[in-house]
């Protein structure tokens, strides 16, 4: 149920984000979701792409530091409180969320959100138990 995410270390230097995205565009990599975490010192670009392994290869060839991480993608109702409801289950179970960001595309009427928590296995079992839709890799590719 976990999906692969690409994380890229970025210096806070002009043009680095553009260079990373350009390298992927030239190789025809399609970005399905994206987020940037940044501090005054550096940034981490996180991507969900159609071909994570190839993406890693391309970026490394372009001298980027890259890591593949597991995350969970869930589908929540696209209306006020839809996401909050899912997060409450995790909160009640004492699971800390490390970060969260949304997909551009929807899954039918639902919004898709990427989650990384301190314990992904536990997160999956709790959300499944509560009936939250968890997307597998095929679902993600079909978005």
């Amino acid at each position: 149920m976990k999906i692969k995410q690409i994380s890229i270390f970025l210096e806070n230097k002009r043009g680095r984000l553009y260079e990373a995205l350009k390298a992927l565009a030239e190789e025809g990599i399609n970005i399905r979701a994206l987020s940037i975490a940044d501090t005054s010192e550096f940034g981490i670009l996180r991507l969900i792409v159609t071909d994570p392994e190839k993406t890693k290869e391309i970026l490394e060839k372009n001298e980027f530091t890259v890591k593949l991480t597991n995350v969970v993608a869930i589908a929540v109702k696209d209306k006020p409180g839809g996401l909050a409801e899912a997060l409450k289950y995790l909160y009640d179970a004492n699971i800390n969320i490390e970060y969260i960001y949304a997909f551009v595309e929807k899954s039918g009427e639902k919004a898709v959100v990427v989650l990384r928590t301190e314990n992904l296995d536990k997160t999956i079992s709790i959300l499944q138990e509560k009936g939250v839709t968890i997307l597998n890799w095929d679902h993600v590719l079909a978005l």
Binding site: Q5, F9, T39, F42, I44, T65, V66, E98
Partner: peptide
């Protein structure tokens, strides 16, 4: 940054 020490999380890098 080395490949070996890069983490996906801001707090780890900090």
């Amino acid at each position: 940054m080395s490949k070996e020490t890069f983490s996906d999380e801001v707090k780890h890098i900090e």
